[in-house]
């Protein structure tokens, strides 16, 4: 065989492998969206779910998912940002840094069911927080932290060292350089990381079944008092999310239209996650262009 032929065969094999990956993705997405899309309607998105009769919607579940996401990010982002700045800017290359990195690796590989049960025992039972959005948000923080720390650290690391030197050489302190120069330069990457991790959080179910609970009490969207139990803002109320809802109607659902509800809800879930992904890309590109003057 000539080198030319070998190369052609290798290229074809590689192209074929890539094609399989892309096909699997499109098959999955296509199937979910095509079978779910007909069930999505304004009514479906804006009415509460019903337990026994047909025609229930996913309004509260969709809101719960978003609210849980916001709470999770409020808890996990500051923690992740601090850890990432430490790892990228301050940590020396020693055993302590190695330990921290290993801890983060292990945290990211914990099975979600285990984290859910842990959250159930510790927050729900031990700390008397009950099935609540807050318990769920803390459990989700466990997943979100390693992803966020790694993506933020990566973005900080991608800022060239010459930027740090420039700051230091102008008489700026280390912290001032990080805050004023490194963080803004890393911002597009950090935002992308947040949005991508949000997709993961949005779709999580196993960890929430035992922490945020599986019930969706009727919410009052005009009650803005977060301490009131019927308020949509109350973080201590149980909250079934979209992903949990899908799991539930499929396992114990008794509504006659369970199949179409789960198909519709799955499609909504996938669409929202796709929006997160495209949004991440668009925002990242936009900010990069803005910073580099379109170059």
């Amino acid at each position: 065989m000539t080198p030319n032929q070998t190369d052609r065969i290798a290229t074809q094999v590689i192209n074929f492998l890539v094609l399989i990956v892309v096909l699997i993705l499109f098959f999955l997405l296509g199937d979910i969206i095509l079978s779910g899309f007909p069930h999505i309607s304004w009514h479906f998105l804006t009415s509460p779910s019903s337990s026994f009769s047909a025609g229930g919607g996913i309004r509260d579940q969709l809101f719960n998912s978003l609210y849980l996401l916001v709470l999770t990010l409020i808890i996990s982002f500051p923690l992740a940002l601090g850890s990432a700045i430490y790892l990228s800017e301050y940590a020396g290359n020693n055993w302590r840094t190695g330990l921290i990195r290993t801890a983060i690796e292990v945290l990211s590989s914990l099975p979600s069911v285990v984290v859910g049960l842990f959250g159930y025992l510790l927050f729900v039972i031990e700390f008397h927080m009950g099935f609540s959005i807050l318990s769920g948000a803390i459990a989700l923080t466990f997943f979100n932290l390693p992803l966020l720390v790694r993506s933020i650290e990566g973005s900080l690391h991608a800022v060239p060292d010459s930027q740090r030197e420039a700051g230091i050489s102008l008489g700026l302190s280390n912290w001032r350089t990080i805050r004023g120069i490194i963080l803004p330069a890393a911002l597009p990457g950090i935002l992308t990381g947040i949005i991508l991790s949000a997709g993961r959080v949005f779709g999580e179910a196993a960890a929430l079944i035992y922490t945020a609970g599986q019930s969706a009490p009727i919410l009052n969207y005009s009650n803005w008092n977060p301490t009131d139990s019927s308020s949509f803002l109350n973080p201590m109320r149980p909250a079934e999310t979209l992903a949990v809802h899908i799991w539930k109607v499929n396992t114990e659902g008794v509504t006659p239209d369970a199949v179409s509800i789960s198909a519709g809800a799955s499609a909504v879930l996938i669409i929202v996650i796709l929006l997160f992904n495209f949004g991440a890309r668009a925002i990242g590109n936009h900010m990069y262009k803005k910073m580099t003057g379109g170059k």
């Binding site: 060239p160 010459s162 930027q163 030197e165 420039a166 700051g167 050489s169 120069i181 580099t292």
Partner: peptide
């Protein structure tokens, strides 16, 4: 601040 520095590769801030 009294002894400034310019580096090998241009490193303007973003």
């Amino acid at each position: 601040k009294h002894i400034g520095m310019v580096f090998q590769k241009p490193n303007p801030f973003a």
